[in-house]
Simulated scan of single mutants.
Amino acid sequence: MDFVEVDLQVNSEFADILIAEFGELGFDAFVETENGFCAYINEELFEQQALDEVLERYSSMVQVTYKVQTIERQNWNEEWERNFEPLFIAGQVSVRASFHERPEAAVYDIVINPKMSFGTGHHETTTLMIENQLTLSHTGKRVLDMGCGTGILAIAAAQLGATDLVAVDIEDWTVENARENAELNACQIDVRLGGAEQIAGEKPFDIILANINRNVLLDNMPAYKAVLVPQGWLVLSGFYTEDLSKIRERAVALGLTYQSHREKNNWVSAIFQAI
C-alpha cells in the first residue's frame, strides 16, 4: 500500500493544532520540518475534500500552503530520512536519527527514529525543555515524562543521570515508538499507555517533565503535584508566552513556586519547584 504525503508550510504556532486535526483524518505519521511539517496517510484513507475542509476552517487565522504527493511504500524510510535533520542543542545535546553520524562535540547523544511520533526536537517546546533539563541535576533521580511522544525527554533524563524513569502517552503507537527509542539508546524506561491516571498513587518523582498543551497542563497539574517530592521540579512546556500567567497562577495555587522560564518564537518552557 502506498502513502500520501502532505507537505505543509505553516506558522509554528498552528503546527500542533493542525497535526491534531490531521490525526482525526487518519494521518498517522508526522515529521517536523523547518517551515511546518509533513503528514502521512495510507493512500486508501486519504480524502482531499476532508483535508480542504480542515484547512478552510483555519484560513482566516493562518496562511497555509501545501503540496500533496504519493509515495511508494518501499520509499517510506527515505522520505522521513530526507526530512529529519540532526540538531545540536545548547552546544551539548545531539539529537539525530540512527543514519546520522554523532557530532564529535556532543556531550549527550540522543538517537531518535520518530516513525509516527511527534518529538524529534525540532519543535521549539522540545528544545526549550531540553535546555531547561540541562540546568537541573538528574543524577540518581526518579523522573516522569508526561506526553512523552518519541520519549526524547525521558532519554535525555537518562543520559543526564536519572536512574528511575517513567514515560506516559495517550497514543498506543507513540508508546511503541518510545519503547523502541529507549532500547535504541540503551535506556531503561517504563513506558505506559494512558493519561494522568497512570501516575495516581505512584512513588513520588524528583522531576516531572510535561510538554503537552496549556489546557491539559492546567487540568492535570494537581495530579503532577500529588506525585512530586518536596523541593522536586516540575518542568512544563507546550504553551505560549501569553499563557504563562495562567500556568503560574495555577502552579502557585497548588503550592509550587515559579523559578524561571525560557522563550523561543512565542513558545515557553517554565520551571516550578514544590514547596
Rank of each mutant, 00 (worst) to 15 (best):
Q9I: 15
D16I: 02
A15Y: 00
N35K: 14
I71T: 13
V268F: 04
N35S: 14
I208P: 02
Q49P: 07
R248C: 13
A90M: 03
A29Q: 13
V4I: 15
Q231W: 04
R192P: 01
P114Y: 04
L234H: 10
S260A: 08
D172S: 14
L209E: 04
I170C: 07
K141C: 13
L8V: 10
N42I: 02
V31F: 08
L193Q: 05
G91D: 01
T174R: 03
V95M: 01
L218S: 08
L193V: 02
G232P: 08
G151C: 06
Y258R: 03
V95K: 00
A105P: 00
A167C: 09
D52E: 15
Q273S: 11
T120A: 09
N220Q: 07
G194S: 06
A156P: 02
E124G: 06
I19H: 01
A29K: 12
N211L: 03
I207V: 15
R179P: 06
G147V: 03
D7F: 15
A274I: 01
D52A: 13
G119P: 01
E171M: 09
L209P: 00
L193C: 02
T257S: 07
A251H: 04
Y58N: 12
A178V: 12
L228E: 10
I189N: 06
E85I: 07
L184G: 05
I207Q: 10
E104P: 00
C148F: 01
M146K: 00
L234Y: 08
R192N: 05
A178R: 09
H122T: 08
V93N: 03
E202A: 15
E101S: 09
G36S: 10
M116L: 07
E13D: 12
A186M: 04
N35R: 12
L193F: 02
E104C: 06
Y66D: 13
V6T: 09
V235K: 04
E56T: 14
G91T: 00
E78S: 13
D28A: 12
A97V: 00
Y240H: 08
I212D: 05
R192Y: 01
A50T: 12
A274L: 05
L184F: 08
N42C: 02
G194A: 07
Q188M: 12
Q92R: 10
I189M: 05
I155R: 09
E85R: 09
V68E: 13
V62T: 11
T120L: 08
N265R: 13
Q92F: 00
L8D: 08
